[in-house]
Design a protein around this nucleic acid. Structure first.
Lengths: 133, 133
DNA sequence: TTTACGGCCGTACCAAAGTACGGAGTCAAG
DNA sequence: CTTGACTCCGTACTTTGGTACGGCCGTAAA
């Protein structure tokens, strides 16, 4: 069942995932993704597992997780430490709810600011800046 | 109208604003806040303008602005660039909405994971990770 | 007045997350 | 069978947002 794009070089993988080649290597060095075995003296090939992994890392990063946290998140995926995984996941969930709350506040604040900027159009003090004072 | 806390040393300012002294100096070096003139050979004093400025920077950081973006926002505070400030804020708002959506998906996934860990006590594949594949 | 606490200043260092580079080796097309 | 594009690997450099350090000096309390 391997799809057409399942025999990628590192360059092709990087391009498909829209990251720099060096970023892939960096993630490998960091242990965030495995390096596929290389046929002796040959070139490594990457498939959609690796592509998914890179995309996962990038998604999680956008959500404000550090690479270390992402490593922890990935460690939940082994299926053999469900209790530990639950604990870590619950902790992350708390985290995430905090971040959600922050983001919602940020969104509301920004929305108000943008609206006020639209409304006041040419006053002396920008409400965006005044609002922090 | 100057309040009691209007004659702060840098240390007191830092403490009041709950940041490191070095952080204040760093912001000064970066041009994010002015250094009050020092009475020749003397010690600088800070008032609530400076306190407000530090708090502004910290607030804006929590809203996801980088120090460079904050500098840009501050440079627009002359009353004539409200439209530019609006543009920057609107852009951030977009950012933030994307993040909110992602985070909500992730929260849902984690909640399911925790529930399933509670329920199955066995080996499953992390739905959080699966959700990105 | 002495002494200690803190401010001033410059420089150096830190962690995170890459990015760049150079000298190999490999592989496919012409 | 050579050339050019790409991989591999190690090392070094970069940016962001700070922190730490050390020598000098001012100010305030004992």
């Amino acid at each position: 069942m391997s799809r057409p794009r399942d025999n990628l070089s590192i360059g092709a993988l990087a391009e498909t995932a829209a990251v720099n080649i060096e970023t892939i290597r960096f993630y490998q060095r960091k242990g965030l993704m495995a390096e596929p075995a290389r046929p002796p003296g040959g070139i490594r090939r990457y498939g959609h597992a690796e592509l998914a992994r890179v995309r996962f890392i990038k998604s999680a990063q956008r959500l404000g997780f550090s690479l270390n946290e992402i490593a922890e998140l990935l460690s939940l995926d082994d299926g053999t430490h469900c209790r530990d995984a639950r604990r870590i996941a619950a902790h992350k969930l708390d985290d995430m709810r905090g971040k959600l709350a922050d983001l919602r506040r940020m969104e509301a604040a920004l929305k108000r600011l943008v609206a006020r900027c639209d409304a006041t159009h040419g006053t002396i003090t920008c409400p965006l800046i005044a609002s922090f004072k």
